[in-house]
Computed example of a mutant assay.
Amino acid sequence: MDILQLKQEVIEYSKKIGIDKIGFTSASPFEELKARLIRQQELGYQSGFEEPDIEKRTNPQALMPGAQSIIAIALAYPSKLKNAPRSTREERRGLFARASWGEDYHRVLRDRLQKLEVFLAEKVPGAKLQSMVDTGELSDRAVAERAGIGWSGKNCAIITPEFGSYVYLGEMITNIPFEPDTPIEDQCGSCRACLDACPTGALVQGGQINAQQCVSFLTQTKDFLPEEFRTNIGNRLYGCDSCQTACPKNKGVDFHFHEEMEPNPEVVKPLLKPLLSIGNREFKETFGTLSGSWRGKKPIQRNAIIALGHFKDRTALPELTKVLKEDPRPVLRGTAAWAIGKIGNIEAIPILEDAKRREKDEQVLEEIEKGLNMLMV
């Protein structure tokens, strides 16, 4: 078998099936990454969503004995929302991060990787092939960096020369010994735009992030959001793009190559008040195809309540009051109490005092007190 010719055929085929960039690297362990991950664990900087086994995250052989290569792929996604609906004083809107626009990227990349697997299986009968996207064990960014897809920016995202950091990443481990590509040299230089733009200071330094403070992570949690971060959330319902939009390498970057990735403006920038009472079925029908729906509706609703407080939207008091009185979930009741206090309308005092008399949950009572204290200032 001519491996060099096969590699070229894979590259040509990848273009036909809608892969925007492809790279190859060895299946040797990611020793530098391993050291960084151990340090992240020691500092308590991990989100908890990652694969906990560092050996699996850094050693392809632990996932596929006999692995010789990894194929990395990247698909560019849009950064500009066409025909974006306006957020008005009485109809405030939230926002899903760009990585959650369109169809869930896990499905899109798995489709491309599956087609690539079929192609390789036909070319090399008996070849071992194992694909993964994001939720797999390996670090997508580490693989992409070593495969020459892009360099790892100070914002911890892979930045490509062609598409900036607006790319989805996936990879395939194989026992086919492809020749590795050359990594791209770091081009961030002395720039620190992303570090300065981070709303919570989660970017500790270039290339190091405290995931526990990252707004993107915080929007995906299900418990009460620590009060110190609520102002930082703004109207974000899922994810955060601040470190990407601030990056000079993303200036003017906006690609619309894939129909599946085109966002529905009303879905990715939805009205906030209707989210507070949305049912499970309607939530699934409206948001179920977005990657941002993976944690269910509770975090989205909590974030919508915080956003209404952020906007000081007095028109939302009836909806917030209903949540405070009737919602069975303490996190939503308590967050609604905080938002009512944040809005600061004098008519909110009796609403919170009434809730205080009826409420049994200690955490909710604490949030009611926070709301009342804001109103008494």
Rank of each mutant, 00 (worst) to 15 (best):
Gln220Ala: 12
Ile305Asp: 00
Lys56Ile: 00
Gly344Cys: 13
Lys115Asp: 08
Thr289Met: 09
Leu37Asp: 05
Asn345Lys: 13
Arg357Gly: 14
Lys15Tyr: 06
Leu138Met: 02
Ala72Val: 10
Gly126Trp: 09
Ser277Met: 11
Ile38Lys: 10
Phe217Ser: 07
Gly66Gln: 07
Pro226Leu: 14
Gln114Leu: 14
Phe283Pro: 12
Asp186Tyr: 06
Thr286Ile: 12
Ile306Cys: 04
Pro263Tyr: 06
Ile278Glu: 02
Glu185Phe: 07
Asp104Phe: 01
Thr221Cys: 02
Ala307Val: 03
Ser79Ala: 01
Thr160Asn: 12
Arg358Ser: 09
Gln68Met: 05
Thr88Leu: 09
Ser190Glu: 15
Val331Tyr: 08
Gly44Lys: 02
Asp241Met: 04
Tyr77Thr: 06
Arg112His: 05
Ile176Thr: 08
Ile71Pro: 14
Thr231Ala: 14
Glu90Val: 10
Cys243Asn: 15
Asp111Gln: 12
Thr219Val: 06
Arg236Tyr: 04
Val10Leu: 07
Val253Ala: 01
Ala348Gln: 14
Ala355Asp: 09
Val215Cys: 01
Leu275Thr: 02
Met132His: 02
Ser131Gly: 05
Thr174Leu: 03
Gly66Asn: 09
Lys7Gly: 03
Pro226Lys: 13
Pro78Ile: 03
Glu12Gln: 08
Val167Met: 00
Glu42Pro: 12
Gly206Tyr: 09
Gly292Ser: 08
Ser14Gln: 08
His256Lys: 12
Lys269Gly: 10
Asn175Trp: 14
Ile3Ser: 02
Glu51Lys: 10
Leu169Asp: 03
Val124Lys: 06
Ile300Ser: 00
Gln187Glu: 08
Leu63Val: 12
Phe229Val: 13
Gln363Glu: 15
Ile349Pro: 15
Glu353Val: 11
Cys198Lys: 05
Val364Gly: 12
Glu145Val: 06
Asp313Pro: 01
Asp313Cys: 10
Glu51Pro: 09
Glu91Cys: 07
Leu120Pro: 11
Gln8Ala: 00
Gly201Met: 06
Arg98Asp: 01
Cys247Ile: 09
Asn210Thr: 07
Asp313Ala: 03
